[in-house]
Amino acid sequence: MLLRNKNAVVYGAGGYIGSRVARSFAMAGARVFLAGRTAEPLREVAGNITTAGGLAETATVDALDEAAVEAHADAVVATAGSLDISFTAISLPQTGIQGTAIVDLPVADFERPMIAYPRATFVTTRAAARRMTTQGSGVILTITASPSRTAVPRMGGMAPAWAAIESLSRGLAAEVGPRGVRVVCLNAAGMPETPQLAEVYGLHADANGISREAFRDRMADLTVRKELPSVAEIADVATFLASDRANAMTGAIVNLTGGLVVD
């Protein structure tokens, strides 16, 4: 098993992406610590993992609260003996953030993702890096999306926020690499089966005067394979990147856009 004897923390584990990645980590042998702001979704994910034979524990943690994140990281190390993998997949409702032209966007709506996404990523990755550099090993995974590297209208502060996370990931990799810690960012195109993408596609569809289905098809047609990635595909790659088989990869932005972005 790729992640046997590894201890993984997943922030935003009650969400669609975080929960799928957590399950993938667990099925690969990791003991998974599920963190999020709402207890019930975490308990549901943990139940699914344990029913399938995996190991999962939950904690209510706001990824924007540095004291809470630090205390939780300490608790993981005290309980499990190490913190080997960290994955951050927080999200915000996108209504009022996407779907409006920048010239018409209020400052407060522009600031919301610019503050929340980079801050949560900084707080969680810093906590992981502090413990991993002490133990001399570990993998920190972050996630962004294709608008960080493309010219997409009506993204508000989301594209700049994702670009900031990618830059943070590179810089952190440079600092912690000599101490045995890898940092990799996954850059994905929209995954249509997620509830958030249904919301986002609706916002952009309305702005373009077309149906949600037509907008989804337009996005899929922009990819090389004419198909957007699935959450399962993202989770599979995250599990590989967290494993020792990916030891040569750090400071990288892994392209999971299906060819929407061509490197």
Rank of each mutant, 00 (worst) to 15 (best):
M1G: 10
L3M: 04
L3K: 07
N5S: 14
N7D: 13
V10W: 15
G12L: 04
G12M: 04
Y16V: 04
I17A: 08
I17G: 05
G18P: 07
R20C: 06
A26K: 04
A28L: 03
G29K: 06
A30P: 09
R31N: 13
R31P: 08
F33G: 15
L34C: 11
A35G: 11
R37G: 12
R37N: 10
R37A: 09
P41K: 09
P41T: 02
R43W: 10
E44R: 13
V45G: 04
G47P: 00
N48L: 10
N48P: 00
G53A: 02
G54P: 03
L55K: 14
T60A: 08
A63H: 13
D65K: 00
D65F: 00
A67R: 08
A68G: 07
A73R: 14
A78L: 11
L83W: 01
L83E: 06
L83V: 06
L83R: 04
D84Q: 11
D84W: 09
I85P: 08
I85S: 06
A89T: 15
S91F: 02
L92V: 10
Q98F: 01
Q98L: 06
V103N: 12
F110Q: 09
P113Q: 11
I115P: 15
A116M: 14
P118Q: 08
P118T: 09
F122N: 10
A127H: 02
A129T: 07
T133R: 10
G138L: 11
T142R: 07
T144P: 03
A145F: 13
P147E: 11
R149S: 08
T150G: 07
T150S: 13
V152G: 05
P153I: 01
P153C: 01
M155T: 12
G156S: 02
G156P: 01
G156K: 01
A159T: 08
A159W: 08
P160K: 13
I165Q: 15
S169L: 00
S169I: 01
G171C: 10
G171A: 10
V176R: 05
V176D: 08
G177Q: 10
P178K: 01
G180Y: 04
V181A: 07
V183N: 03
V183S: 04
V184K: 13
V184M: 14
C185L: 10
A188S: 06
A189S: 11
P192M: 05
P192V: 09
T194Q: 02
T194F: 00
Q196R: 07
L197Q: 01
G202M: 04
L203A: 11
L203V: 13
A205R: 03
D206K: 10
A207D: 03
S211M: 09
R212Q: 03
E213C: 00
A214F: 03
F215Y: 12
R218C: 04
R218T: 08
M219Q: 09
L222N: 06
L222Y: 01
V224H: 12
R225I: 11
L228M: 02
P229Q: 00
P229Y: 00
V231G: 01
A232T: 07
I234L: 07
I234W: 01
A235V: 00
A235Y: 00
T239C: 09
L241D: 01
L241E: 03
L241G: 02
A242N: 06
S243P: 02
D244R: 08
R245V: 02
N247H: 14
N247P: 05
T250V: 01
G251C: 02
A252H: 15
I253L: 06
I253R: 06
V254W: 00
N255Y: 13
N255G: 12
V261A: 09
V262G: 15
D263E: 13
